[in-house]
Design a protein around this nucleic acid. Sequence first.
DNA 1: CCGTTGACAAGACGGTCCGTCTCGTCGCAC
DNA 2: GTGCGACGAGACGGACCGTCTTGTCAACGG
Lengths: 200, 200
Amino acid sequence: MPATARKPDASRRSERSRRAILDAALDQVGETGYEKLTIEGIAARAGVGKQTIYRWWPSKAAVLLDAFTAVSEDAAQGQHELPDTGDLEADLKEVLRATVDELNRDVYDRPARALAAAAVTDPALAEEFNRRVLGPQLDLYVERFTAARAAGHIADDVDVRVATDLLVGPLAHRWLLRTLPMDHAYADRVVELALRGIAA
Amino acid sequence: MPATARKPDASRRSERSRRAILDAALDQVGETGYEKLTIEGIAARAGVGKQTIYRWWPSKAAVLLDAFTAVSEDAAQGQHELPDTGDLEADLKEVLRATVDELNRDVYDRPARALAAAAVTDPALAEEFNRRVLGPQLDLYVERFTAARAAGHIADDVDVRVATDLLVGPLAHRWLLRTLPMDHAYADRVVELALRGIAA
DNA sequence: CCGTTGACAAGACGGTCCGTCTCGTCGCAC
DNA sequence: GTGCGACGAGACGGACCGTCTTGTCAACGG
């Protein structure tokens, strides 16, 4: 009589339905935005019963997170580390420029923005989002900076995690809050200023 | 026959109702969070008809923006510029530490977070939010950096707007997405690293 | 080979909140 | 004092919520 919320049998789960739901969620958010993303809408578009969604996901944000994780891994194209040509500044500019381009494509921007917005007011989702998507991406910068420090290209006492924030934070800020346009020139300036510092 | 959405007469507006609505919205979002903030709930708590809210605001986010603008101006306490003791690093640390403290107070964090989240997926609200709240705050940094540049404390070719992002971006990133805890030590490190740069 | 099991599609259901509307009431401007 | 328009209250149809019910179907065990 423990109030055991009995769990569904994952081995009997329909892969076909799972993919249809993920695709439908991604399509819907890309077309009409997050505010018009609805469980009923996803179910109808996927040709699936609502209960099938509620059985496997706790919220529409969780569905979108699963869907976006696949997109994100596709975009990574199996690249599990940042380029290292020995020229730190050039490498970082290349990566940040690519990030800017990615965030300016609607198919990537829409779901990413929806997830970020949801994470801002939902700590549990934020934790999951960091663990599955954002964290691994930030780790790439940490690794690259660690290598650069070993090569003597950055100061010994630099906290590589803070250095990562110094690069990514400004980009994310402009992207999320749209304070000003975000383009290649901005990415370059951020890299230059972050590397050499503001002080005279 | 122009579809003139006839506008209400602002001179007959009830100041009493206006304040009650703003207070109710702020209280509600502070207690139960943004997702449970509802127009009907605000109206009930404020002892006001729903129509009175719909007559003067286009969305609940707009109500919250008005409410928060007042709070934000209170918090500024008439300080329309950043401290300038001549020691740029110390001044910036003081300001960022104060910002961290502010963002860690629920009465400030809750509505600010709700507005930021709404702005992420609503470009029109983002524009208004930037114009009324975020923009003026960022301008303070721009002014302080401009003064520092005139005093020869920062390099001549530094873009003061990018420098501002370099400070504020990392803080905002940690605050919004909760990648890692945000405290005084972090604020100090960001200031130090931003000023002197990552490179050796 | 057949019976049991549990996920499935479909959709009914009560509930909440939406945004619009219709009421009297009441206060300010003229 | 009179009339216009904002006001509080709440009814209204509609959207979507999350749960529940029904009948179908495929996998798996005996």
